[in-house]
């Protein structure tokens, strides 16, 4: 186990290095730069600006400088927000997204897994149809429709919540519900699919034959195997949910990091793009590692090998 994790860590470190390098050069080849503006900047001022941020140096030099500062955990200054560093922006905004993501993930897992399991156990009954319909509706109605709809109903007509913002605890409710449902839907579908695979297997019949209660059969025996696809899905999904959603954070005006993933690219804020990419890559790699460990735990036949 220890060896597995260290090997995996080293592999991931190398993969992270590749991600950083690829991103560093990719952003530079995209048309437009951080100072491209509607009102043109004179060549002299542009030169001053580039000199200020070290963009006048040869690209390989900038790359080495960037790697050097990364060793000191310094992600550099933001181009778009001159008085903020990328470290500060990430430190400010990640907790907000993670809080919202954590609540949503809870909602998604509870609703998704219980509905999916119920649908599989009560297959082809009205319970299955209701649960499955919820899943399909959740998948087919995008968050940019559900979000404004809930705001119209609960904030504007009923007046229970603010329309958006991140000021009081109640402001968490609507965005967390929207985001939670968005993830609950696919989770419920995957759970149902995974459970159906398992429920017909012989060991479940054996367990039933031995007189175990249906509840026990499902929770103790079937879920272990049935959740396998969900667990695979959760690696990237949790990384996505914890780093915030661009759509949700925009609709609800939430000061999270999710918006920066897209906006930094649009602003050509090179350092912030790299900062968010590193954050996401670390999460993805970490979570996929966790997923592999969990899968091995769920299924003793799977050996951890690196």
């Amino acid at each position: 186990m220890f060896r597995f994790i260290t090997t995996r860590f080293l592999q991931s470190l190398f993969a992270l290095f590749l991600v950083i390098s690829a991103t560093f050069f990719m952003v530079r080849f995209v048309p437009g730069g951080p100072f491209t503006a509607e009102k043109a900047v004179t060549p002299e001022i542009l030169r001053n600006l580039e000199a200020h941020y070290g963009l006048d140096k040869p690209l390989y030099r900038q790359y080495l400088d960037y790697l050097g500062s990364l060793l000191h955990a310094d992600l550099g200054p933001s181009f778009k927000y001159p008085n903020r560093t990328v470290n500060e922006i990430i430190a400010d905004k990640v907790p907000v997204s993670a809080e919202l993501g954590g609540i949503s993930l809870g909602i998604a897992l509870v609703i998704g897994i219980s509905l999916g399991t119920l649908a599989a156990v009560k297959r082809n009954t009205w319970i299955d149809y209701v649960a499955s319909s919820f899943g399909m509706i959740g998948i087919s109605i995008p968050t940019f429709v559900v979000g404004p709809l809930l705001v119209l109903v609960f904030a504007i007509y009923l007046g229970w919540f603010n329309a958006s913002g991140w000021y009081m605890p109640a402001d968490r409710v609507l965005p967390a519900v929207v985001l939670g449902i968005a993830y609950a839907a696919p989770i419920s579908r995957l759970t149902r699919g995974g459970m159906l695979e398992v429920l017909h297997q012989d060991f479940i019949r054996t367990a039933r034959a031995k007189g175990a209660s249906e509840f026990r059969v499902v929770t103790r025996h079937a879920l272990r195997g049935g959740l396998l696809p969900v667990v695979s899905y959760l690696g990237p999904a949790v990384a996505g949910i914890l780093t915030g959603s661009f759509v949700i954070e925009t609709i609800f005006q939430i000061p999270g990091i999710g918006r920066e993933f897209v906006n930094s690219a649009f602003n050509r804020d090179y350092t912030l793009v790299l900062g968010t990419v590193i954050l996401y890559a670390v999460l993805i790699m970490g979570l996929n590692l966790v997923v592999d460990v969990v899968q091995a735990w769920l299924n003793p036949k799977v050996r951890l090998e690196a």
Binding site: S12, A15, L18, V19, A22, T23, M26, V27, V30, P236, A239, F261, V262, A265, F266, V273, T276, V277, Y280, A281, I284, M285, N288
Partner: peptide
Amino acid sequence: TVDIMYSLPFPI
């Protein structure tokens, strides 16, 4: 490789 592909910034 999959991890790397996940991580690259999509709009860029």
